[in-house]
Design a protein around this nucleic acid. Structure first.
Lengths: 222, 222
DNA sequence: AAAAATCTGTTGTAATTACAACAAAAATGT
DNA sequence: ACATTTTTGTTGTAATTACAACAGATTTTT
C-alpha cells in the first residue's frame, strides 16, 4: 500500500489531501489492493456495488451487455480513474455496467459505507473529498456526453472528424496522441474498423488530417 | 413562488426536506422563477454556468452543437428534473451542452454559490441535499449510459428493441407509454424516422411488439 | 364542422456501411 | 535474426439505411 501512496495522493479523488491524512482516510475506508488479469471482471453488470475502485496500474473497459446480444465498450479507463463512483451514491442500485480488466491491472478498493454518513464529520478533508467526488462525477457526465456527440454523427467521416476535433480541443493542440488502437477506436465510435481505416486514408489524402500510428494532426480546424 | 412550494418539495433534489426548511433554503439560494417560450435558450453551449435549474412546468431539450454542423438532442427533460447540476460542481467550466425550452416552460433557478462552500454548515438538511445531488448526478450518468447502449446497437431493429426493453424494465411492465413522438424517438435513437416506422410495423406484424400511438407492449421479453 | 397543420406509415431508389478476404506493416516472442 | 502473431490498410460485394415523396390519420385552429 505504502508503495502507491504518492500515486494515490495525485488522484482526482484525493486531490488536495495531505499524505498523512490520506493514510488515515485509506484506513478508515478499509482500503485494499488487488491485482486483476486481462479479461477478469471487476464489476459485473447487475452486481450491487458498495465499493469505489481506483485504477492504480493498467486499464479497464466499461462495458454494457445488451439483452439483445452485443457487448458495447462504453469507455476505456486508465490510471487514477475511478470506477463506479456514481453507483455508490445510489445505494443498493444494481450496476448497469460491467468493469472488465483490459491489461492486467492493479485496483484499489475503498469501502465508503464504512465511513457511513458522509459529511457528518465536517472536517475540511471531508469537504475536499466530497467536492472531488462531485467534480469526478460531473466530468464523467461530460465525457459520456462527448461520446454521445461523437457517435451521433451521421457518417463515418463526421464521426472521425468530431472525435478528432474533440481530442484536439482537449489537448489544446492540433497535434495529439490518442489512447485507442484502430479496433478500439472503431468500437468506441461504433463503426466498422476497415471502413474507418478507409475513411481515414481518404481524409489524409484530402489533406484534412495527418496521422502516423496514434499521433494525429488536424489541419483545417473549425 | 409559494404556488410551487409543494411541487418543489417533491423534487428529487429536495427529497426529505420539510416545507419550512425548503422555504429557508430557497431564500438562501436566491431562488427565482422565470418563464421561457418554445425555442428559448436556458443555457447556451459555452456559457459559464453558476446556477442550477429545475423544471417546474414544461419540458426542455439538452442539445449539443457540433462544430461539424449537426445539432444533437441528447435528452428530453421533464418536470422536476434539474439542468446543469454537474456543471456547477466543476466551477468555471464552460457548458458543453445547450438547454433549450421545448414547450413553454417554467424554470426555477438556484444560485448555489450563494451558500458558498457546501457542507461547511453541517446541518442535517445540508447532508440530505448533498446526498440528493449525488443521486441525481449518478442517475444522469446511468441515463446517459443507457442512451449510449441504445444508440450503439447495430441495426434499427436492435436499437428499437433495446430502447423498448429498457423502457419496459424502467416501467417494470411489458406495457408502457413513452415520452417521445416518432420524430423525437428517431432523433434520440439517431435514425431516420421513416425507416424506424417501417421497422416498427415489421416488429408488430412479426408479433414481437404491439403499439398504438405512444403505448407499447413487448411480447417476447428477454 | 370544415380547413389547415402536424404526425405517422409506406414505398422505391440512391448512398452508405458492414463484412469478408487478403496483403502489408509492425510488434512480439523465441 | 527469424518466425509468429497482431495490427493496419485496401478492395469488392451484399446488406442496411437515409432520403424523398406521398397518402392516410390525427390534432389543432378557425
Amino acid at each position: 500500500m505504502e508503495k502507491y501512496l504518492s500515486k494515490i495522493k495525485k488522484s482526482p479523488l484525493f486531490l488536495g489531501i495531505t499524505e498523512e491524512e490520506l493514510s488515515r482516510m485509506l484506513n478508515c475506508f478499509g482500503a485494499s489492493i488487488k491485482k486483476y488479469e486481462t479479461g477478469e471482471m471487476i464489476i459485473r453488470q447487475g452486481d450491487v456495488v458498495s465499493k469505489i475502485y481506483m485504477i492504480l496500474e493498467g486499464s479497464v473497459y466499461i462495458e454494457k451487455d445488451s439483452y439483445w446480444g452485443r457487448r458495447i465498450i462504453v469507455q476505456k479507463l486508465n490510471e487514477l480513474n475511478n470506477i463506479a463512483l456514481g453507483l455508490v451514491a445510489s445505494r443498493n442500485a444494481e450496476s448497469s455496467i460491467s468493469a472488465v480488466c483490459h491489461k492486467s491491472a492493479t485496483i484499489l478498493a475503498l469501502n465508503f459505507n464504512k465511513c457511513s454518513s458522509m459529511c457528518t464529520n465536517a472536517c475540511s478533508h471531508h469537504v475536499s473529498l466530497i467536492q472531488n467526488m462531485f467534480k469526478i462525477l460531473s466530468k464523467e457526465n461530460i465525457e459520456l456526453l462527448e461520446k454521445i456527440e461523437n457517435i451521433s454523427q451521421k457518417s463515418i467521416r463526421d464521426k472521425l472528424l468530431t472525435f478528432l476535433s474533440n481530442e484536439s480541443m482537449k489537448n489544446k493542440s492540433s497535434s495529439f496522441e490518442i489512447n485507442f488502437n484502430r479496433q478500439e477506436l472503431a468500437d468506441y465510435l461504433n463503426i466498422d474498423r476497415s471502413a474507418m481505416s478507409f475513411e481515414m486514408s481518404k481524409l489524409k489524402s484530402e489533406g484534412l488530417i495527418d496521422f502516423e500510428k496514434n499521433k494525429f494532426t488536424l489541419f483545417e480546424l473549425p
